[in-house]
C-alpha cells in the first residue's frame, strides 16, 4: 500500500514537471504562425506557463503545427515527429491543421490533407482562422491539464482508426 502511494506521488510529480516545462518546436506553414509569435510576445507571454520555443526537435516535448498540411511536406513532418523523444505531444493550430479548413482536399484537390491527424497523432486542436493568442493559450493550458492526468480526450482513438499505420510506408497514399 505504501509503495503504491509513493509510485503515484512520483508520477504526479513527473506529470507536474512535464506540464510546466513544455519546450515546443514550431512548424509554420500558414498564417497562424504570426499569432503564435504574438503569443510569445510580452502581452500574452507564453513563458510564464513554462512554454518556450526550442530550435531542435530532438530536445522538444511539444510539436506545434499551423497551416495547411500539404502532401509534399507531410513526410517531412512525420520525420520531425519521429525525432522527438517520448513523451511527446502535438498541437494543431488553425482550421487548416485541424481539419483542412478552407484549404482542405475538397478545395485543393490532391495537394493538401484533411488535417494533421492523418500524419501524426494530435493531442490538442485549436480551431480558428487564425485563432487568437488567447485561444492558443487556452489550448496550451488544456494540454497541461491533460499531461497532469486530467484527461479530456483519448489519444488512442486515432491509432485504432488506423490513421498512423497508413503512414509507415514510404510511398505517400492519399486515401
Amino acid at each position: 500500500m505504501k509503495q503504491g502511494w509513493i509510485q503515484s506521488s512520483v508520477s504526479r510529480l513527473f506529470g507536474w514537471a512535464q506540464a510546466h516545462s513544455l519546450r515546443y518546436f514550431p512548424i509554420h506553414m500558414g498564417c497562424c504562425s504570426d499569432e503564435l509569435l504574438q503569443a510569445v510576445g510580452c502581452r500574452y507571454d507564453l513563458e510564464r506557463f513554462g512554454v518556450l520555443p526550442e530550435v531542435d526537435p530532438v530536445f522538444s516535448d511539444l510539436l506545434i503545427v499551423s497551416g495547411a498540411i500539404t502532401t509534399r511536406s507531410a513526410p517531412e513532418l512525420k520525420k520531425i515527429y519521429e525525432q522527438m523523444p517520448h513523451p511527446k505531444f502535438v498541437m494543431a493550430i488553425g482550421s487548416c491543421a485541424c481539419s483542412g479548413g478552407a484549404f482542405g482536399p475538397e478545395a485543393t484537390g490532391a495537394s493538401t490533407l484533411a488535417g494533421l491527424s492523418g500524419v501524426v497523432p494530435v493531442d490538442i486542436y485549436v480551431p480558428g482562422c487564425p485563432p487568437r493568442p488567447e485561444a492558443i493559450l487556452e489550448g496550451l493550458l488544456r494540454l497541461q491539464d491533460k499531461i497532469e492526468g486530467k484527461k479530456t480526450a483519448s489519444r488512442k482513438q486515432g491509432r485504432k482508426q488506423g490513421r498512423i499505420d497508413r503512414l509507415e510506408t514510404d510511398e505517400w497514399d492519399l486515401r
Binding site: 500539404t70 509534399r72 511536406s73 517531412e76 484549404f103 478545395a107 485543393t108 493538401t112
Partner: peptide, 11 residues
C-alpha cells in the same frame, strides 16, 4: 521551395 503549395490561384 514549394512545400506549402495549396494551389490558391486554382481555388
Amino acid at each position: 521551395t514549394g512545400f506549402t503549395t495549396r494551389g490558391v490561384e486554382q481555388i
